[in-house]
Nucleic acid binder design. Structure first.
Lengths: 210, 210
DNA sequence: GCTACATGTTACCGATCGGTAACGCCGTAA
DNA sequence: TTACGGCGTTACCGATCGGTAACATGTAGC
């Protein structure tokens, strides 16, 4: 997380300097998305204007609107990038412990806990967006809903495959505690109840094993 | 603009059952606060301008600024009103089951679950505000932190008094799941994992009873 | 050379943002 | 009666919002 956009700010005003690093011709669309990720996540979606994003991406508003039809669409794309990242985590974890759903589940729990413990973390970008964008028809909302649903389905599948008793209950418990941890660090900081997410999840799993 | 504010006129505050509501002598400050509660909560803090609040309160911006030094201060006051409400719930619950901490805890859990299940609920106003106002020095932040801290302390105290094993763990578990339920309904709606908050909490309590 | 296209630049639009000044009305207290 | 304070009204401020038009560049492919 916190994919710094330092890469974009490195080659600032390289007028004549052919030295330094390779050209790094990152296309404007990617730079804009990277800047949007940084700014939307750290400052909030409604607190950041498109002008600020364009500037952070070292381009301008006009180019931004050539790649994204509106700010709302940019927000949706910003969330899609987070969603696909999280989806990639699942694939990565499935590869590390093939055929061992319980190990996969615990690995995922530790991975999530590590993300939450990151001092730069401000929780789940998707859930935060849901708080900031209550409007029903917003293009970001289907991205959020889909992500949460598949996310929860993954956890449930592992709980089932691991042979836990009442897998639906366990999956929802882990899921709720993770959601709670990610939102609570924004109120109480990183020293609050979120620290106990791993212990609580493993306790829940243990008490439903056979 | 779109939805007129009916909250200020649905007569919840006024104890007087004297017919309809001809007098309506609710002072402007209260009307403004009521309008702010409605609009900030349903639409988001940054999405609502002071003009809209004044209009919904059937007054004007000038009067609003006579009672609140700034929008940020109005936001802080808005959160204080939620915090004191929640605090009142604790007092009410302590009175219903004096000397029975376990019953108090379970009553509180059911009460919170009922709030979460309300179709108009958009979760915890304090937690939502923390998501929307990441700025460090915002006057609302101390309100949020204090509320969360005392809230959690209440749960922990009951877990201790109830003689549960590892009361810190149980308290944090219940707290995290509640936080998770309240934020998750904003992403998945009211049919998601939040439905299992009661079952999960009671399960956690049961597995730590002696 | 040339064309074609992606990007950068400047200026602009109407709307809204948070916040303030000035004045007029009116009910109450002295 | 007079004085005063709370409230409503209008107009205004500079800044920023999301979004667009017109034009000037650079550069890649032919």
């Amino acid at each position: 997380m916190t994919a710094r956009i330092a890469a974009a700010s490195d080659g600032a005003q390289d007028t004549g300097m052919s030295g330094k690093s390779p050209p790094e011709k990152i296309p404007p669309r990617e730079r804009i998305l990277a800047a949007a990720r940084e700014l939307f996540y750290t400052q909030g979606i409604r607190a950041v204007g498109v002008e600020a994003i364009a500037e952070a991406a070292q381009t301008n508003k006009m180019t931004l609107y050539r790649h994204f039809s509106s700010k709302d669409e940019l927000v949706a794309e910003y969330l899609r990038s987070f969603a696909s990242e999280e989806e990639a985590v699942w694939g990565c974890i499935a590869a590390t412990h093939p055929g061992d759903p319980l190990a996969q589940l615990k690995t995922w729990i530790h991975r999530m806990a590590k993300d939450v413990a990151d001092p730069d973390s401000r929780g789940c970008a998707l859930a935060n967006a849901a708080v900031q964008l209550p409007e029903a028809g917003h293009p970001a909302r289907c991205v959020i809903e889909n992500n949460k649903r598949t996310h929860r389905a993954h956890v449930l599948a592992l709980c089932r495959e691991a042979g836990l008793r009442d897998p639906d209950l366990v999956a929802d418990g882990i899921f709720l505690m993770l959601e709670g941890a990610r939102v609570n660090i924004q109120s109480e900081g990183h020293g609050g109840p979120a620290c106990r997410f791993v212990a609580l999840s493993e306790d829940l799993i243990a008490s439903h094993s056979r």
